[in-house]
Design a protein around this nucleic acid. Structure first.
Length: 174
DNA sequence: GTTGAGCGTT
């Protein structure tokens, strides 16, 4: 009522209503199936995406739940916010970022130049993969491994993690 | 079996 100044520049405080909900404060053991069980009772889901750490391969503790309708997403946000899931009180809000940055969408869609390139798709798709939702949060793109001590990729790192889990004494004999 | 805070590059 009073002229309270809401900081509109901080999009986290006032996320726009969207079909994508961000769920934070999750347990490390909460999987997409659990989220699907919880959130699907508010409406049909379009997808659930738990964010995993690329280095460790485990959950980062937050996920994104896609609804098909904004009305259901709003309903889910109202109800599921603050609920206890797997021993953790989760926080549910509208996602401020639309999608993860997709460097390659799986299939090569053609050259980014549109110089006479109306190819097989009828020229309908443009830049729909690169939305502008994350441009102001590009500081999160810069991760700290950029300034890591190791500049050369070491062959011991981040490869065959699950293979050599037990690192006990098992000397290989050739 | 960690735990903040935390918006995504399988």
């Amino acid at each position: 009522f009073k002229g309270e100044t809401y900081n509109h520049s901080d999009a986290r405080a006032n996320p726009d209503p969207n079909t994508c909900l961000g769920v934070f404060g999750l347990s490390l053991y909460t999987t997409e199936r659990d989220l699907r069980e919880v959130f699907s009772r508010y409406g049909p889901l379009a997808g659930v995406n738990v964010v995993y750490d690329q280095r460790t391969g485990r959950s980062r503790g937050f996920a994104f739940v896609y609804f098909e309708r904004i009305d259901d997403a709003k309903e889910a946000m109202e109800r599921a916010n603050g609920m206890e899931l797997d021993g953790r009180r989760i926080r549910v809000d509208y996602s401020i970022t639309k999608r993860p940055h997709t460097p390659t969408p799986g299939i090569y869609m053609g050259r980014p130049t549109h110089s006479g390139g109306s190819s097989s798709s009828g020229g309908r798709r443009r830049d729909s993969y690169y939305e502008r939702g994350y441009d102001r949060y590009d500081r999160y793109d810069e991760y700290d491994y950029r300034y890591s001590r190791r500049r050369s990729p070491s062959p011991y790192y981040s490869r065959y993690r699950s293979r050599s889990r037990s690192r006990s004494y098992s000397p290989r004999r050739y």
